[in-house]
Amino acid sequence: MSTFRALFVEEEPDGKVSTSVKETDLKTLPDGDVTIRVHYSSVNYKDALATLKDGKIVSRYPFIPGIDASGIVTESTSTRFKKGDAVIVTSYEFGVSHFGGFSELIRVPEEWVVPLPKSLSLRDAMCYGTAGFTASLSVQALLDNGAKPEDGPIAVSGASGGVGSITTGILAQMGFSVIASSGKAGSEILLEKLGAREVVSRPDFNPEKKRALDTERFAHAVDSVGGDVLSYFLSTTKYGGTVTACGMALSGKLETTVFPFILRGISLVGIDSVYCPYEKRVHIWEQIATNFKLAKIDTLIHEISLDELPKALLQMTNEGMLGRYIVKFI
Rank of each mutant, 00 (worst) to 15 (best):
R60N: 12
H98F: 06
P65A: 11
S76T: 10
H98W: 13
I57D: 08
V87R: 05
V96W: 15
G66P: 07
S119E: 14
F81V: 12
E111P: 03
K118E: 10
E110I: 08
N44Y: 09
F102Y: 15
T28C: 07
R60G: 10
S97K: 12
T90S: 06
D25M: 05
I72M: 09
E111S: 11
P115D: 02
P65E: 07
E75R: 15
P117W: 06
L29I: 04
S42Q: 00
T79R: 14
G32M: 00
A69M: 15
D54F: 05
S91F: 14
D47S: 10
Y40N: 04
T79H: 14
K53H: 03
V114F: 02
T77I: 12
S70M: 05
G101A: 08
S76H: 09
E111H: 14
F102V: 09
T51Q: 04
A69C: 07
F81R: 03
E111C: 14
V87Y: 03
F81S: 00
T77R: 13
F81M: 00
F99I: 04
D31Q: 15
K82S: 10
S78D: 08
G100M: 01
I64N: 06
S78A: 08
E75A: 15
I88Y: 00
E75M: 14
S70A: 14
R60L: 10
G32Y: 04
G71M: 03
T28A: 14
I72V: 15
V43N: 05
A50K: 10
V114S: 06
I64H: 12
P109G: 11
Y45N: 02
E93Q: 15
I88L: 02
V73H: 10
S41F: 11
T51C: 04
D31V: 14
V38N: 05
F94N: 07
W112P: 13
T28Y: 08
I106W: 13
P109E: 11
P30E: 02
I57N: 00
E110H: 12
K82L: 09
K53T: 07
F99A: 13
D33N: 02
L116E: 07
F63S: 02
Y61I: 02
D85I: 14
G95Y: 12
V87M: 01
S42F: 00
